[in-house]
Amino acid sequence: MQDTIDYSVLDAAIEEFGAKESSLIAVLQRAQEVYRYLPAEIFPYLSAKLGISEAKIYGVATFYENFSLEKKGKYVIKVCDGTACHVRHSVPILEALRKELGLSAEKKTTDDGMFTVETVSCLGACSSAPAVMVNDEIYPTMNPDKAIALVISLQGVKNA
């Protein structure tokens, strides 16, 4: 858990992409990667550094689905619901995961901050449909049972 904001992450990203308006998305992606969401505290910082109003940064952050203003879980589980995954029954996987973790379409992150379950429109892993991605790792040809087993194994990592 990253509780205090480490601004050096932003500084490094700004250094890399340039202190200009057009670097905003790249810098936000870096922030999202490191903090796993876009903390409110970084808005005034980026506004001053990149010369963009906080309102505009908020506009960009709310436009793209990939950016989150809320803290995500340690494990972000993305259930692919693209056409290939959908026809090979991705929805039951999603439902099983939500049921197992007590989540819904509105409540996406568990209270203990361990898991976030969301859908994506395509992971580009259609040949392994239905696919699930946990953080940066793809889990191919899933079904509800395998998904639950995956969650349990991840919980085991936590308890270990």
């Binding site: 808005f43 109003s53 906080e54 309102a55 505009k56 940064i57 908020y58 506009g59 709310t62 436009f63």
Partner: peptide
């Protein structure tokens, strides 16, 4: 500025 998108789009402050 413009916030959110598609049918949810609205004029927002930060």
């Amino acid at each position: 500025d413009y916030g959110f998108r598609s049918s949810k789009m609205k004029i927002v402050t930060a």
